[in-house]
Design a protein around this nucleic acid. Structure first.
Lengths: 280, 280
DNA sequence: TCGACGTCGGAATATTCATTCCATCGAGAT
DNA sequence: ATCTCGATGGAATGAATATTCCGACGTCGA
């Protein structure tokens, strides 16, 4: 016979209630059960499809622990609990568009922040959408080839574009591609860039109103024969290089602040494409 | 022994290839197998979750027919085929081998860079989508109120999160909100943060694997009584503050690189919401 | 009309699975 | 130090499942 825990007699039937309960009860749970809770929250898909044995192995517990876990939350057994995880995936795909619109209506009448939030989300999505339409694969290939040949890749971006270049810098570092980030608070940028030559390459990112430093750096570098990959927002941008490739990225904005999603997605594509090209 | 059909030796490993093959082969299939094909195309979810017996009943065939069906398409058995249907529903944020192949069949050009590009775009969109589902407006209001009261807002983020904090820093600057960016290459971060007190606030952003410096800074600041707004990827994150608000943001990743779209959208929402709150 | 082959249904089987049970371990209280 | 009780690991069990096998049926060609 089992004593009645602090669990309710009726276990949660929908995933989010269960998830909340797992989160809130985690600290009062025995070691192994807490381990299961953490795994289940982090990998709900595996719980939905796996067998007790396979899940137990990944979570590093015994299968019997899974059964105990389920019972601790008021379920009859593991299978009973697993059904909740499966239901979550069932209506996720079938009601996806429906869910989206229902959320929009929630948002509609609410507070100012709800409108903000919806606005920025929408801006992000629209930006990526327009990116898809505009960018041609050949451009990416060309840019990647150009960058892959370079000894050093200089990353030029200020203000709003700096987050993009800094992420590229981080990613290049992880991928073992030599790059130098220009535009941070140190004043040594002009000297740094004077080392750039035809055997190197540079990536410059800027949108209206173009930061003058970025323009100057890009021009300086390009005139030294260094090929440029440019991400900007207009075919008439002063940034468009004599030698190199350029991408037109139009970021939707909201309340005067541009989304960076499209630039980020393109930047990541270029970054990984370069690493791929180097590998071969 | 079985005769070799027109099926390939290697069965499709992603759902869409399989689906196409089911559609195209349907007319040449025996009656019951065609029946299975029709049911499987119409109810892929049921195939993913059901047992051979339950599916067989709904499709009005025998369980053994399902096995034969699977073998007719080159699979070893029903379970083997079922795995393909399950993978379709999985949205594991890191399973990129499957995602690669599934993208290949969708995307027109099949060059490596086209796949990359589509992958990063999709990751961005999915991230924003999941952000919409997860975030509650009250959290945003709470965080904005908390930040609006602060004298100085400290921005803590390293590595992958640094682009986000640096964008917030830029936006706060444009909006006339006093903020200090921590985590750049200068070594003075600990001293900078020691000035933070209960009248200030801090924003900390970190995802697994959590950068240890971010963890330390956040803890230090919070124990000094400074309320924290945290953006992280799990309710069990060590970053979750005693005083303050936290947001769970799950970024889809592709080829090991996370999208930043969701974090960016949320960060912008918070930034502008704070400025709005200050104005009144 | 007869034979042959492919298809199908359903029982038999072998495998995999969830669950239960029990011995052991460890922490906290007396 | 001893006892107690909950937690845990791991083997045992029994149920459920996928798969195989074989006889029957229908169709097509001779």
């Amino acid at each position: 016979m089992m004593t009645i825990d602090d669990n309710d007699a009726l276990p949660p039937r929908d995933f989010w209630s269960l998830r909340n309960r797992m989160v809130s009860r985690k600290d009062t749970l025995p070691k192994r059960l807490a381990q299961v809770a953490i795994y289940a929250v982090a990998n709900p898909d595996d719980v939905a499809f796996g067998t007790a044995a396979s899940i137990a192995e990944k979570a590093e517990v015994q299968p019997s622990t899974l059964v105990r876990f389920a019972q601790a939350f008021g379920y009859q057994g593991f299978s009973d609990l697993q059904a909740v995880f499966q239901d979550r995936l069932r209506d996720r795909t079938s009601n996806y568009s429906e869910r989206l619109s229902s959320l929009r209506s929630h948002v509609a009448g609410d507070s100012k922040s709800a409108t903000l939030f919806a606005g920025f989300c929408k801006a992000a999505e629209r930006s990526v959408g327009s990116l898809r339409e505009r960018v041609q694969v050949e451009q990416i290939d060309e840019a990647a080839a150009l960058l892959a040949k370079a000894e050093t890749i200089y990353l030029i971006g200020q203000r709003r574009s700096f987050p993009v270049t800094s992420y590229m810098s981080y990613a290049f570092g992880k991928l073992g591609v030599k790059s130098i980030l220009v535009g941070s608070a140190q004043g040594s940028d002009p000297e740094t860039l004077s080392f750039a030559g035809p055997r190197d390459a540079a990536i410059a990112i800027s949108f209206t109103p173009y930061a003058s430093a970025t323009l100057n750096y890009a021009r300086q570098v390009n005139e030294a024969g260094t090929p440029l990959v440019v991400i900007t927002d207009s075919p008439f941008s002063p940034l468009i290089p004599k030698i190199g490739v350029w991408f037109e990225v139009v970021e939707a904005d909201y309340e005067g602040f541009r989304s960076l999603s499209a630039s980020m997605a393109l930047a990541m594509t270029l970054t990984v494409a370069v690493a791929e090209a180097r590998r071969t």
